[in-house]
Design a protein around this nucleic acid. Sequence first.
DNA 1: GCAATGAGCGTC
DNA 2: ACGCTCATTGCT
Length: 757
Amino acid sequence: MTARKGEQRPAATLPVARVWVDVPLAHLDRPFDYLVPAQLAETAVPGCRVRVRFAGQQVDGFLAERVAESDFGGRLGFLSKVVSPEPVLAPEIAALARAVADRYAGTMIDVLRLAIPPRHARVEAEPPPEPSPVPGAPDPAAWRRYPRGPAFLEAVRAGRQAHAVWQALPGEDWPVRLAELATTAAAGERGAVLVVPDYRDVARVHAACVALAGEEAVVALSADAGPAKRYRRWLSVLRGGARIVVGTRASVFAPVHRPGVFVVWDDGDDLHADPHAPYPHVRDVLIQRAHAAGASLVVAGFARTAEAQLLVDSGWAPEIVAARAELRVASPRIVALGETDFQLARDPAARAARIPTVAFEAARAALAGGRPVLVQVPRGGYVPALACQQCRTPARCRRCAGPLGLPTAGRAAARPAGDVRSAARRAGEARAAVGRTAPERAERIGAPGSLFDAGPDEPARRGHVGVPADRAPGAGGLPDAPGGAVGRWEGPGGAGGGRNGTDHAPGGADGTARPPTCRWCGVPDTAFRCGACGSRRLRAIVVGAKRTAEELGRAFADVPVLSSGASEVLAEVPDRAALVVATPGAEPVARGGYGAALLLDGWALLGRADLRAGEEALRRWMLAAALVRPGNDGGRVVVAAESALAPVQALVRWDPVWHARQELAAREELGFPPAVRMASADGPADALATFLDELELPPSGEILGPVQVGDAERALVRTSRKDGRALATALATAQHVRTARKEPDSIRVRLDPLELI
DNA sequence: GCAATGAGCGTC
DNA sequence: ACGCTCATTGCT
């Protein structure tokens, strides 16, 4: 397949190959043209892997397309070699990768690295699989518990495009529901991609799909398989053998033929955010892909994210939720125990474990009935944040609403407030809040003209503009706003004096010498006052529930204790009396359902220095509580958290929709994603400063920070949603400039990063 | 005044 | 890791 030197002649037809070269430089993120030598005319097919000479080096690349002529002015080189004629880059995936790269201010080749697994020559030489038999459509009966469920399945069956945000009932056998969706598509000779957080979920959903659609129709793609196995399975999808793909995040790019339905399960799980550049999120990629492919999409989970709520609010996706009557039948009985309700059990052993009566009794009853009891304990290693001493609402910066923390010696506290710039300020308007001392600033926060005011270019009304489901989710690429423009965003106090708006507290916050400091913008807050209850006292969140769980084991001395966590994760536990201690995300499934669950990780989850802390706590609680039997079958859940808190109320009432609405409203008020588009930029101080200087932001653009993060610095950049595309373009352009200049330092850019501190 | 040499740069 | 440009050097 190698072209020999000297005697090269271009192919007779379509002699020009457009090639994505595998170089890491942002400013080279475009195809380069090469001549196809006559002897490679047949093998140099669109989508194949090639090697080309690029700047004197041999580099890998993907052949995007063959065309008749080039518009390059200079002399073209020849392709050096066709690595393999296998067309691994399907046109659909190429378009998707381009859109994802643009959405995340990254490069095509970075996305292709995520999308296309490494080649394995021996596997490629194996004969292609037979197309799998078309399965029959499954029985949609279980979907009748959800009013719009059967209609959605019917749309998938008929090959119509439909979107949905689905909240599963507690106890729902969701792997089987996902298998039904996939098999319904496969029955119509369409493909399906089911994306789940981890390999345990892959195994469960794969088994469910095999049971419905047959072994040959389904393939499991997850990173834990070796390279040969991985490539073989992926190839079987590419070659049309398997119609249903079950996998973890990278399978969003699986080259299924004629995709009919995409599903992301538990979209709030941070495993759905790829840790490799350009850090795409499964939900975003599937929204884009479903739209481009005319396929259906389900964003699913027990809990609902603010992002999913936005899809509903904008009219992009109708919701699939059960009626309250169904929920009453399915839900375990859930109670919350705050500190005030914390009545210790009389039993001496339980007393030693500091187990409240209600929890102790719930566990005792379940164990007496021969059923396992789930005990959810926090993982170690959460960064302690500051919260209100009195009501434990996380303490937030009054200017940018970032999380407050205690500065470690010699670090973030030193950054002056003057580092904060906004596009508006650059344009010449002096803005009020910048560079003032804290009390002065506090006075100004609620006033018009603060940094958080919606600019003149923002839409005047809050709210969403609904669009028909067949409309583009965003102009020309990934949906900047699924369903178009979303209303304006404002900071604290923007509209009518919000939560933290009018505080003007004298005196120190907690009596310490070092004032609490915002982890985002670096501004110290010498006059903290809780926005929720008005208290001026702060506390650091501390955790001790792991020990509680151990002591609980002693309280039930004759019951076996099983443990599932970071070191060893159990998939399933036997259906008999046992204490199952698990960290969030590692809860084993109990076949008949747990008799009870004790959720002891409340403060650790709610106290995380993360804007998603509440949503994340609810998500993890619901995942655990969903494993418990219905209340009328004795199922009990006890959560150790203050019942006044929104996530706790949402759990007790099993109302993920109510919580998601609140969460989204709060993000709109505070100026967090998904209400705004935000990016983080990390790098050495000097390089970052230059990078930020050169950013050409849209009018709504604003820079927070930088603040010190470890050895480097981090800034946050945000714009309104409608300027999301412009933000990504600005960041990409700034990266192009840097790599073109051969700057030695690199700046890491992430859009809408999940962890924002 | 101009060839010989080398560093830097773009990259088809 | 090549081949191009452009600056510097050294010789007539």
